[in-house]
Design a protein around this nucleic acid. Structure first.
Length: 294
DNA sequence: CGAGCATGCGGAG
DNA sequence: TCCGCCTGCTCGG
């Protein structure tokens, strides 16, 4: 689920499984062949996420920038099997047998589908499919991308004041503002809808009509939800008392969200039917009972 | 098998 | 504001 939490999980996973060693980079599909050649064989020195961008830094100073878009996903394979991080995807066949070439690098299975980028080291492999961006950039170019992004609640350097300065001056609805990566980086359709529900805020409220307290609470809640997402690996926004089985672990998928994908279903809190509307090409979900228009 | 859908974004108008 | 694109899953016929 490529909202911000997924990218931070990816950065941590790359750091753990590829960081500090030489990496072979290729493009089985061919569309990333030139970029792959630029970093092939280098040592992965740093792995970082900012909003929905993943930055993999190599010892040459070059960075690989990946944006998963709506469909992108990484598949990882090692001696423990396979797993996916990104867009939803059925679990593939798990194979624990890993062949190695004479240099000790893993020989991954034949590419399945369009593998834009493939990374291999001596303990595993990673395949990237369907990204909206996958390119090698300079340090300056990487910084330029980050300069256009708003504060990411998952990053230690995040300054919520910057976001509030924009939000509090805007006539745009808070629902639209939360989706803008130049205002808050890492929020997607699910966190947008769920955080507004939890705050009891009407999504159509103009940014300038939010109170400072409302914004502070929203920012705090987003940070907590994102950190939960990093920990759990999927988005859970429902409080235990609003789940059919408060003690169920892990939380069953149908019970994880308050409003997203629940059009017409009864609100978990007030039983009103969940509403949905198309807004700038995306579906906005909310509860008219818990988030009344003012 | 095709249509529809999805956690996103950039560019044209 | 709308369209196109990247991929793969699910559902209906």
């Amino acid at each position: 689920m490529p909202e911000g939490h997924t990218l931070h999980r990816l950065a941590a996973h790359f750091d753990k499984t590829f960081g500090g060693g030489a990496v072979r980079v290729s493009s089985p599909q061919g569309r990333f062949a030139d970029g792959a050649a630029l970093v092939d064989g280098r040592v992965l020195a740093e792995s970082e996420a900012h909003g929905k961008h993943l930055f993999l830094g190599f010892d040459s100073g070059a960075w690989l920038r990946v944006h998963l878009g709506l469909y992108g996903a990484w598949t990882f394979g090692d001696a423990d099997g396979e797993r996916h991080l990104g867009a939803p995807r059925a679990a593939g066949a798990t194979s624990v047998e890993l062949d190695r070439d004479p240099d000790g690098f893993v020989v991954p299975p034949a590419p399945v589908g369009a593998v834009r980028a493939r990374m291999v080291n001596t303990s595993g492999w990673a395949d990237l499919r369907g990204p909206s961006a996958c390119e090698v950039v300079t340090e300056d170019e990487k910084i330029a991308v980050q300069d256009k992004l708003g504060p990411d609640p998952l990053r230690a350097d995040a300054d919520p004041e910057r976001a509030w300065a924009r939000v509090s001056r805007s006539r745009t609805t808070v629902a639209a503002l939360l989706m803008r990566q130049d205002i808050v980086a890492g929020i997607g359709n699910i966190y947008r809808a769920e955080s507004l529900f939890r705050a009891g805020i009407d999504p159509m409220t103009p940014g300038r009509e939010l109170t400072r307290d409302q914004w502070d609470a929203l920012w705090q809640d987003l940070g907590g939800l994102l950190r939960d997402g990093v920990r759990d690996g999927y988005i859970i926004t429902t409080r235990p008392e609003h789940r059919p089985d408060p003690d169920a672990h892990p939380v069953p998928r149908p019970d994880t969200l308050y409003v997203c994908y629940r059009t017409g279903d009864p609100c978990r809190v007030c039983s009103s039917p969940i509403a949905a509307a198309e807004l700038a090409g995306r579906t906005l979900y909310w509860c008219p009972g818990c988030q009344p228009a003012r």
